[in-house]
Simulated assay, not measured.
Amino acid sequence: MVNWVAHSKIQERHYDGTAALDLDDTVGGTTINLGIVTESTINPDTNSLYSGLTAVATATGWTGPVALANLSCALDGSNDLVFDADDPTQIAQDASGFSNGRSVVLYRSDDSHILASYTHPQAFGNVNGPINISFDANGILKVTI
């Protein structure tokens, strides 16, 4: 199971009404994107914008952040809030791709605020083989209520 780190600023913006986000029915052209960056640490309290991070290079196999599909946000059997989405499409192997990915980031497309991030223990990339990103069957994020 991958432990995604929820980011503080988007939670604050949601709850104080600054930028509420309906995670299962994004409106106004907002999507939740998945990006890959080179940072090996992303502080959830101080790094609030994807645009402030260093995205990995794009090439034929990886063309940049992708929008998540089939977002869902609902209560589970324990009345905890669970956010989920379909697994992204496989990132194809590409000899001119990237090898310096360290973190995967979920963020709002309209204002770049980070929802959550996951930092891999070591650098990864698609130069030597394809990449499959699979979300946990129990959801990407769980908020215990």
Rank of each mutant, 00 (worst) to 15 (best):
V27S: 14
P65C: 03
N132R: 05
I36L: 14
H113R: 08
F83V: 10
T41A: 13
A69P: 02
V104G: 00
S103C: 04
H120F: 14
S48A: 14
Q93M: 06
V27Y: 11
I131G: 02
P88E: 10
Y50H: 03
N100G: 10
T63W: 03
A67D: 10
A74M: 04
H120Y: 11
A55D: 15
A59Y: 01
T89W: 02
V37D: 07
Y15V: 08
D111I: 12
I114R: 02
D76W: 13
V66N: 07
N47G: 01
D16N: 15
A55G: 15
Y118C: 09
G97P: 00
C73N: 11
L81G: 01
S40Q: 11
Y107M: 12
D84C: 01
T89V: 15
S78L: 11
F83I: 12
T60Y: 00
V66F: 00
D22I: 13
N33Q: 12
G101F: 00
A116D: 07
N128A: 11
L71I: 04
D16K: 10
G52Y: 15
S103F: 05
G125V: 01
Q122V: 15
N43C: 13
V66C: 06
S48Q: 09
L23N: 08
G129R: 02
F124C: 02
A19L: 02
L34E: 01
Q11L: 15
V82L: 08
L34A: 05
D22V: 10
S134L: 12
S109P: 00
V104C: 09
Q90L: 04
G17I: 04
T89I: 11
H113T: 11
D84K: 15
R13N: 12
F83R: 03
L49N: 08
N100H: 07
G52I: 08
T119H: 03
G61V: 05
L34R: 01
A85T: 12
A57D: 09
D87Q: 03
S134M: 07
Y107Q: 09
L34Q: 03
I131V: 11
P130L: 12
Q93N: 06
N70V: 07
N47S: 10
D84Y: 12
V105H: 10
H120I: 06
